[in-house]
């Protein structure tokens, strides 16, 4: 790709004020994060006895060890499992629906599509009580399987919306030519449209994965026992249990932040674009 030309406005002489402001906000953004990591190394009495802004006197891994030998990996595994399974269904259900909305003509296309888009603004909490009752009725309360239904459903509107827009950008001729050549609609979807929008699938996939990875309210309401909790809930339970041992809580928070932090260090822009996907396409 040719290098993008830039003009004067991207590199005016930066005033010192610009640097100062940039540095101040950098501190505002990362100091809490660094504070969290450092405090995990303190002892629980040290945290209370000496000023919190001081570095740990004796760096100790004891808190991290305790968290790792506790419920951490269980929570991590539960989260991975729920996110991966949900993602599979989200992509399959949403991509096929998006293809139908983008290319198939049927009665009520427009109305159904606007209904799906309108579903974007339904507040989760309005549905919370009925979904809780339904989960009990289906005998999936306190099971990871119970989370997948709501997770898939609430991800569908945004995913369908974004993928439909991308599929509409693929020339219609592709579709018509393939059909005239005798391909079925299913084949056109699987072999032409789906592969052509895979970048968009990845982007919106990252968005969904991050959202579900951090999801709180459904996991909070639909599970209760420790070995069924996802990672955010593991941390939440941990702070309830060890409320007097703040460094232990900080260690748990740090470990819980590792998966996303690592993804950011590896994927950077791609992760950022994924997180922003919901906002930019709308």
């Amino acid at each position: 790709m040719a290098k993008k030309k830039t003009y004067g406005f991207r590199r005016p002489k930066l005033s010192p004020v610009a640097w100062v402001v940039a540095v101040i906000w950098l501190l505002v953004a990362i100091v809490p994060y660094i504070f969290m990591i450092l405090m995990g190394f303190k002892g629980s009495t040290e945290y209370i006895m000496s000023p919190v802004y001081k570095l740990p006197q004796h760096w100790s891994w004891i808190n991290f060890n305790a968290v790792l030998h506790g419920s951490y990996f269980h929570g991590l595994l539960n989260s991975l499992l729920v996110v991966v399974i949900s993602m599979f269904f989200i992509v399959m259900f949403a991509a096929s629906a998006a293809f139908a909305f983008a290319r198939l003509r049927f009665r009520g296309t427009a109305i159904l599509f606007s209904a799906v888009v309108a579903a974007l603004i339904v507040p989760i909490h309005t549905t919370l009580i009925p979904i809780y009752l339904l989960t009990n009725k289906l005998h999936v309360y306190d099971q990871l399987a119970g989370l997948i239904g709501p997770y898939v459903a609430f991800a569908i509107p945004i995913t369908v919306f974004i993928l439909t827009q991308f599929m509409r950008e693929i020339p219609k001729d592709f579709f018509e030519a393939a059909i005239v050549d005798g391909a079925s609609h299913a084949r056109v979807f699987f072999q032409i449209y789906f592969p052509l929008v895979r970048t968009a699938v990845v982007t919106v996939g990252i968005f969904n994965a991050v959202t579900l990875w951090n999801e709180f309210v459904f996991a909070y309401v639909l599970t209760s026992s420790g070995n069924k909790r996802t990672l955010p809930l593991t941390v939440f339970d941990y702070q309830g249990e060890y409320s007097s041992n703040i460094p232990a809580i900080m260690a748990a928070l740090t470990l819980a932040a590792i998966p996303l932090t690592l993804s950011y260090l590896i994927f950077q822009e791609r992760l950022v674009n994924g997180v922003m996907a919901g906002a930019i396409k709308s």
Binding site: P232, V235, L253, L260
Partner: peptide, 11 residues
């Protein structure tokens, strides 16, 4: 500046 996004809201 992106760092706040690396933690869950709960965190």
């Amino acid at each position: 500046y992106f760092f706040p996004f690396l933690m869950s809201t709960v965190g």
